[in-house]
């Protein structure tokens, strides 16, 4: 069963008298364990597509299914809960709660899931060790570098045991070394844990590592290529 599936997905914006079709009838299927990059220039509809897949926006036509469940008809509150249980997010910036430490940030997601304190601490520590931050558990975001913050965000995204991780320009603010390091970690998690990653990016460094590259233009899929590394 595919993790993400869209049917004739459509998202139309009304800008004054102008109707903009940001996403125009996209059929897409992403299977478990994929490491996919959605690319395209600004205004191509890539971000809109990502928001629809991530349950942050609602389609005006067609539907999105995550792990077999159609999320297009969920209410706002149901959608929040669905995101919590099924999708991990890594954003470009403002990923973390600045007043919480690294480990508390990762725990926070599990707290929302009402996991026990012991389990929260155990898994959060484990995940932070996995992203190489075992010695930074009690540092607040302000005390971490940009790369380290993004690694905490990855750990946080994985904490809820999601069906897939959606990463929106995760490397935009990072230098080459941090980018390589972050991508290494995500690639390893993909390889070892079979975790599905979907990126929206125009960072060549990310595209180079992706196993599938979907190019979006004018709200449509222009090309969909699988790459063997």
């Amino acid at each position: 069963m595919p993790v993400i599936e869209t049917h004739n997905l459509e998202r139309v914006y009304q800008d004054g008298s102008q109707v903009i079709k940001a996403v125009d009838g996209i059929d897409l299927q992403i299977d478990e364990g994929e490491f996919t990059a959605i690319v395209g220039p600004s205004g191509s509809g890539k971000t809109t597509l990502l928001n629809l897949i991530g349950g942050l926006d609602k389609p005006t036509g067609g539907q999105v299914s995550i792990a077999g469940e159609n999320i297009s008809d969920l209410s706002d509150n149901q959608m929040i809960n669905f995101r919590l249980e099924h999708i991990g997010f890594v954003f470009q910036a403002y990923n973390l709660i600045p007043v919480l430490t690294a480990v508390e940030n990762v725990e926070f997601i599990m707290l929302l899931q009402k996991k026990s304190k012991v389990e929260r601490r155990r898994r959060a520590t484990q995940l932070l060790e996995a992203v190489g931050l075992g010695d930074r558990l009690d540092k607040k975001p302000g005390e971490l570098s940009g790369g380290q913050q993004q690694r905490v965000a990855v750990a946080r995204a994985l904490a809820s045991k999601p069906d897939f991780v959606l990463a929106d320009e995760p490397t935009a603010n990072l230098d080459s070394a941090s980018t390589a390091n972050l991508l290494d970690i995500m690639a390893r998690l993909n390889r070892e844990e079979n975790m599905t990653f979907v990126f929206a990016t125009h960072d060549q460094r990310v595209i180079d590592r992706a196993k599938r590259i979907i190019t979006v233009e004018d709200g449509k899929i222009k090309s969909d290529v699988k790459v063997d590394h």
Binding site: N77, I80, R83, F89, Y94, P98, L112
Partner: peptide, 16 residues
Amino acid sequence: KKELGMLMAVGMSKKR
């Protein structure tokens, strides 16, 4: 704004 948006995106309910 952005931080609160992020919290809602990752699954913090409106009630919370």
